[in-house]
Each structure stands twice: as C-alpha cells, then as structure tokens.
Deep mutational scan, measured.
Amino acid sequence: KVMEIKLIKGPKGLGFSIAGGVGNQHIPGDNSIYVTKIIEGGAAHKDGRLQIGDKILAVNSVGLEDVMHEDAVAALKNTYDVVYLKVAKP
C-alpha cells in the first residue's frame, strides 16, 4: 500500500532515521530506503503514520529508488519545513 505523508519539520528535523540504498543494502538484494528508527517527540512520531519498516519511495519530487544512501540522506536534509513523503507500507 502506497501513501503520501505530509510532515512539518520540527526543531530536530523530521524525526526518523533511514537505512538502505545502493552499496548499503538494508535487506540483501534490495536497494530500497527503509525507516529504521522513529525519534520520540519528533515530527514523524507526532504524526503517527510513518512506521519502522516503511519504505520511502520519494521525498517531495525526488525519487529514492536505486539511489545511494548518501543521496537519500541529502534528499531528506535538503527540504523546507513542509515535506511530502511517498511511502510503501510493508
């Protein structure tokens, strides 16, 4: 199931950690970017929809399929206060 989640960045950013990407696979044979941690009190935690194990398909208009881990981190960092995440639920 794919959904779009709109998050408003807090003082600590979006409030979640990711793993995965080309050269840094979270699941062997899979280059996808996965949510590995939700920080308590952060934007994602308060919103409640993003969960550990969700796959991040895109940030705003930037696709995160088959990208390097660093590029995924940069895509999440290089955002304004309002961030749209395209997410696939497991």
Rank of each mutant, 00 (worst) to 15 (best):
A58K: 15
D54Q: 07
T36E: 08
G15C: 02
G53H: 10
M68Q: 13
Y84D: 15
D81G: 13
T36H: 10
G48V: 01
A44Y: 00
A72C: 09
S17Y: 11
D47I: 02
G13K: 04
V62N: 15
T79D: 13
N60C: 04
V73Y: 08
V22Y: 06
N60V: 00
P28N: 14
K77Q: 09
R49N: 15
N60M: 03
G15Q: 02
A88G: 13
G29D: 09
S61K: 15
A74L: 13
I52V: 11
A75G: 05
P28R: 11
K12H: 05
V35P: 00
K9Q: 04
I39Y: 09
S61T: 14
A44R: 00
P28Q: 13
V62C: 11
D71E: 12
L76W: 02
A19H: 09
A58C: 14
G53K: 05
K77T: 09
V22N: 10
A43E: 13
G63Y: 13
G42P: 01
K86W: 05
Q51M: 15
A44V: 05
A74R: 13
V73P: 02
K89H: 09
E65S: 14
V82R: 13
A19R: 13
A44D: 01
Y80W: 09
V83M: 07
G29V: 03
Q51N: 15
D30R: 04
G41N: 13
G42R: 06
L76S: 02
L14Y: 06
E65Y: 13
I33P: 02
I5F: 14
P11F: 08
I38P: 00
K9M: 12
G29K: 05
D47F: 02
E65F: 08
K55Y: 03
G41V: 02
D47E: 15
I52N: 11
E70T: 15
K46Q: 12
I33E: 01
A74V: 11
K37R: 09
G53E: 05
F16E: 01
K37I: 04
H45V: 04
A44S: 05
G21M: 02
H26P: 04
G15F: 00
K1F: 05
A19Y: 05
I18E: 01
I18V: 15
M68L: 13
M3L: 09
V83S: 06
A19V: 06
L85N: 01
Y84M: 14
P90H: 10
A19F: 04
K86C: 06
H69Y: 10
E40P: 08
G48H: 06
K9Y: 05
K55G: 02
G23W: 06
K6W: 04
G21Q: 02
A58S: 14
K37S: 15
D54N: 05
L14V: 07
G15H: 01
I56Y: 00
D47R: 00
G10W: 04
S61P: 02
P11T: 12
V59E: 00
H26D: 03
K12N: 06
V67Q: 08
N24V: 15
I56R: 00
E70C: 13
I39D: 09
G15I: 00
S61N: 12
M68D: 12
D66V: 05
K55A: 10
D66I: 04
G63Q: 14
K1A: 04
N60K: 02
I39M: 12
Y34W: 05
K89Q: 09
K55H: 05
D66L: 06
V67I: 13
Y34T: 05
E70P: 10
G48A: 14
D66E: 15
K86H: 08
K77Y: 09
Y34L: 04
K46A: 08
T79S: 13
N24K: 12
D30I: 04
P90M: 11
G23C: 10
K9A: 09
Y34S: 03
V87F: 09
I39R: 10
G48M: 06
